[in-house]
Design a protein around this nucleic acid. Structure first.
Lengths: 202, 202, 202, 202
DNA sequence: CATGAATGAGAATTCATTCAT
DNA sequence: AATGAATGAATTCTCATTCAT
């Protein structure tokens, strides 16, 4: 019975998080309204406060949950083949997550790009596992002489992740016109690895 | 006499815009408080409304002013030499603007990266001159066979601008740790043109 | 339980309406202050907005409630005997309502006499049932040859109602000196039916 | 020269009063905005305060001016013939004033009918000359046995004036539909003297 | 636990009034 | 005298949070 109670609680919590993600994605932390979140979850305003300390807390949890869900997906991505293939696979996984958890990811991206001191470190730490994975791939690439060696791989990794995020922002900002979600992985990897200059030109 | 009055008014307006930029940069549109802006400008609350219709209006004007100041600076940048040199010069000019008008630029970047439907088109239109300049450079580069031809130059231009913005965000987000403003132009251009892959590797 | 809640809410709503009527009667729509209304009702400012959309809405509801209460009372008045008796009964009922719901009626009268385009039609429509009743009485009087036939009864009805209102205004304006509430029905009916001219004089 | 200065000042004052009457007639004391009044007069906000102590003062002066203008016109009306003719002439003069000074009169009527303790006595005192004139006519009528003797003539006079005002309100409230200004004098006098009952019926 | 009415701090905005020019 | 920029008190309305049921 306690078990069932626990599960029930967890379910309600989820519902609230989903609804919150929805609203935070659209309106931001300040613009979102607790009452509307609760109603979207089919609950009363007060109930939110049975699960979360405050609106800010709720926001932080949405952020954390978003990162958790994202990271969970990357863990399963295998790194076979060269750097290009691995990065493609990772980026593809990322886009796949985006599709399923767009609301959560939007919250994360939006907050990340507003670089508020209160949340920036939080987000960086949440995203660390993902960046680390990229870093690992790139380090392998350095060993295989596929990657430039004049810059530290952690910085390159951050650049790659940043590039992905940048493309998401342009995707959302353009209303999905360009780039489309489909082309993002290839676009990101190609831009990141090859640059815009002509090969022979160098 | 009227002349002096006019100048005086313009000065006050400036002061308000500066103060507003400060606050919007830190708190965003929703987080900023009109009363605190006016006080930061050494004026009373009501005075803000003698110059601007509403908080939203004020925000829009800060945005416009930020873009205006930025664009004004790019106009003077000459495109001599190859693509690399031109882009470097442009990026350097951009960073120079950033140093002097950090508050305004932060507002623009923050808003741009939050991709709100209300302001995204506005910002895009404001930034258009800058993107166009990059586009012009890249188009020249295509003619000189310095730039890949498999992607439309407008998209490449947006990518370059996005990359710059991305580096600003990481600069601000890291508290200035990495990248520093000095290294941003080279970093942006090198990443954009060369990518992270090894030349020979291809 | 829900029942009790509902009743409780209805009670609070009433309290707010009464307090609002008080203030609107004294200060008019523009002069009244929401905060003072809520405090007069023993509630906090915000509570008003849990029950009414806005100050204007609240005013409209007070108006409607006032008319509703008034009309409810007239419905029970029987028209027996001649025109004079019927009008007297009706006017007496109106004065009786006035005594009990003075605050509400004052709001209605005040607003009616300020002939604002925003509310005048509203008030006219609310008062229609009362005017119609007078009209019915007068029409009966026309048949019985008690009433002049050279003017449409609806216009005469409006005149009678207007006369009543006029006497209320003079009553309130004079601080109750003249006319007193007691004499208003007879005064209204006599003035309306007989006029100030001498019978024989005609 | 002083003379000219004086006249100039008087002219400006007039302009302000007219503009104020306009706005007070439409918006009431509370709804009117000083700045808009001054601009309607082609002057700056501050100028109003060179001529009037405060908005309230200005309102009071508009009220007084309205009454003054009205009363000035009645003074010239001769009482010849019987009561009916005299009252008709007076009412016609009143309507004539209304036509020319509608803005001022609206302010007076509106304020009178809102029976605010602050202004009611003021208005009554301003209107006293008019009421007195009616009273004089009625007293003459009593002597000639044209008027009922069972009610004090001052009260009858107030009733007559009230009736006129009532018709104005209905005229304005109905958007001029009924009664029209033309029919008001006859309507007022006939209603007042004859009533709605049939002569023979009594 | 869920509920939702009550609360009141806080924010945007208006506008009468002042006063330096 | 005329002006109109500056002021800040006053007001409406919002919404996060509390708490009795």
């Amino acid at each position: 019975m306690v078990r069932i109670r626990q599960e029930e609680k967890e379910k309600v919590r989820r519902r609230l998080l989903e609804a919150a993600a929805d609203h935070f994605a659209d309106q931001g932390l300040q613009g979102a309204v607790v009452d509307r979140i609760s109603q979207a979850a089919g609950l009363a305003k007060g109930t939110v406060y049975n699960y979360f300390e405050s609106k800010e807390q709720l926001f932080a949890e949405v952020l954390a949950e978003g990162c958790r869900r994202a990271v969970a997906r990357y863990a399963g991505v295998p790194h076979r083949g060269g750097v290009r293939e691995s990065l493609l696979a990772l980026a593809a996984a990322d886009v796949a997550v985006l599709r399923e958890e767009e609301r959560f990811l939007k919250v994360v991206v939006r907050e990340a790009m507003s670089f508020r001191p209160e949340t920036y470190p939080l987000i960086v730490s949440h995203l660390a596992p993902f960046v680390d994975q990229v870093d690992a791939i790139l380090s392998g690439g350095v060993a295989d002489r596929e990657i430039r060696t004049d810059r530290p791989t952690p910085q390159l990794a951050m650049l790659f992740v940043g590039l992905l995020v940048l493309l998401y922002v342009q995707h959302w900002g353009s209303g999905g016109a360009w780039p489309t979600l489909e082309e993002i992985p290839a676009l990101a990897v190609s831009t990141f690895l090859d640059g815009a200059g002509r090969r022979e030109a160098t």
